[in-house]
């Protein structure tokens, strides 16, 4: 396989896989936060903040894949 073709196939696939994992991760995080908010609405602000921080860490992994995609885009 040519390098360009391999990249063209690999970058979207890798990004999709990264997004899949992050999606599951953020889904679990938000699920937990929602349940906690429902159980204890008075702690809403703090739960939301913690959830946002966690979501940012999870989301960063997809962003790394996205950045790699942008870096390698010129080589396709």
């Amino acid at each position: 396989m040519e390098p360009g073709a391999a990249l063209g196939l690999g970058i979207p696939l890798g990004l999709g896989l990264a997004a899949f994992g992050s999606g599951v991760g953020i889904g679990l995080a938000v699920k937990g936060a929602m349940e906690a908010m429902g159980r204890q609405p008075e702690a809403l602000g703090r739960i939301q903040t913690a959830m946002l921080i966690g979501a940012a860490f999870i989301e960063a992994l997809t962003i790394y894949a996205l950045v790699m995609g942008f870096v390698l885009m010129g080589k396709i």
Partner: peptide, 10 residues
């Protein structure tokens, strides 16, 4: 920095 960059570039 990568997080902000990636999101905004996207």
């Amino acid at each position: 920095s990568l997080r902000l960059f990636g999101n905004l570039l996207g």
